[in-house]
Design a protein around this nucleic acid. Structure first.
Lengths: 216, 216
DNA sequence: TCCAGAAACGGAGGCGCCTCCGGTTGATGG
DNA sequence: CCATCAACCGGAGGCGCCTCCGTTTCTGGA
């Protein structure tokens, strides 16, 4: 993939529409906000668009003007969610030791997986329609993970002989079967398991600094 | 595939429900009839179930009692259509010379293809749900075609060096892109083209009996 | 500051889906 | 032939989708 053009990193659609009336932008934001909330709450169920409009305090007509189809709305929410996830990594990295930041971030990833359920059907449609969307977001997530992982490895609190793709494969178990009631708890345990594995045999890890056997 | 049990050939679901109240069966039949009509008319569009109930002269509740989902209804109509197609072959064979019967039957197949459009979406769902349905019907259609073809070959009005699978592949062009306005005309031309090909170089074909070159 | 017109709002209304339940009707035993 | 009642009917009603258009609000220029 070649270098991107000058514009900021991702989030192009968010600010391109040059002149948008202030009220229009306000309503649009309210809608996205409400939609994110609703999708997160009602896992799996295709939420009612009228409900989203209602919660946003906006008429249904306004929703349809901004987002002609359900998929348009889902796409924006999805992008936003992924970008928030990426931005959260920076904040976490600034406020915590690198291994703690990594751990916290993976927990956020669990929450994000839950949100995704509310958009499941529409996301499936989008896969056929808009492959680029998924290429973008998947790239962003994996890049973020890599960033955190390398920082922690550099600090010596996490082993350095694994790469981010492996770690991602390991945690991707959280995306499966997110229907069961104890799913969240199980996912958090999975994350902690992985963190232990990452700290093990790291030079200065708190979980058993340097004393683990080198895993082949 | 092993021999079937004693019951008549196909159409099991049609008469199994031992005691069905007469009015219930009447309404069921009316619904299937109306549905077939509506599916045939409104190609591609998922027809309104309320419209079907209306045309059948029954309440919407009655429709839903007999057919809990749209797919249930589509399945019954689809089966009925295919079986009618097979039965028509017998009638045509009894009333016409074998090659004429074959020709007429392929034209019926064109009409049937048109009907199928009205059920397109639901059929797609059924493919994931009920693979057996398609195995049955595909088998029935191909068996019918073989029957007609062999009779015509035996009578010497159609060449005998092609098998039914090839012929089916040839006419299956009619199932593609049935959206264009001249689709029907084009399909009929396709059928006539194939018939000419089949009559060509047949011992006693009327289209040029026996004088064609042997096609490799 | 004010005004005109463009832009956006929002909800009524038409339609379809599906459920639920009071009323009706056909089958059955007497 | 009649009474009984399970089975069946039908459509009202609640909800969601989506469109259309009269009304309101913003914005840039005078």
């Amino acid at each position: 993939m070649a270098e991107r053009p000058a514009r900021e990193k991702g989030r192009a659609a968010e600010e391109l529409p040059r002149q948008m009336r202030a009220d229009a932008r306000r309503n649009r934001d309210k809608l996205v906000e409400a939609a994110a909330r609703v999708f997160a709450e009602q896992g799996g169920v295709d939420a009612s668009l009228e409900d989203i409009a209602r919660r946003a305090g906006v008429g249904i007509g306004t929703l349809y003007r901004h987002f002609p189809t359900r998929e348009h709305l889902v796409e924006v929410v999805y992008r936003r969610e992924v970008e928030a996830l990426s931005r959260a990594a920076d904040a976490l990295a600034a406020a915590n030791p690198p291994d703690v930041a990594l751990n916290e971030w993976m927990l956020r990833l669990v929450d994000y997986a839950a949100t995704k359920r509310g958009m499941a059907n529409s996301l499936r449609v989008l896969q056929d329609t808009n492959a680029a969307l998924f290429a973008d977001t998947a790239g962003l997530v994996s890049a973020t993970l890599r960033r955190l992982l390398e920082a922690a490895a550099a600090a010596g609190t996490v082993r350095s002989d694994v790469d981010s793709a492996d770690v991602f494969r390991a945690i991707s178990g959280i995306f499966s079967a997110p229907g069961t009631p104890d799913w969240r708890e199980r996912s958090r345990r999975l994350v902690s398991l992985i963190m232990d594995g990452l700290r093990w045999s790291a030079p200065g890890g708190e979980g058993g600094g340097g004393k683990g056997p080198r895993v082949t």
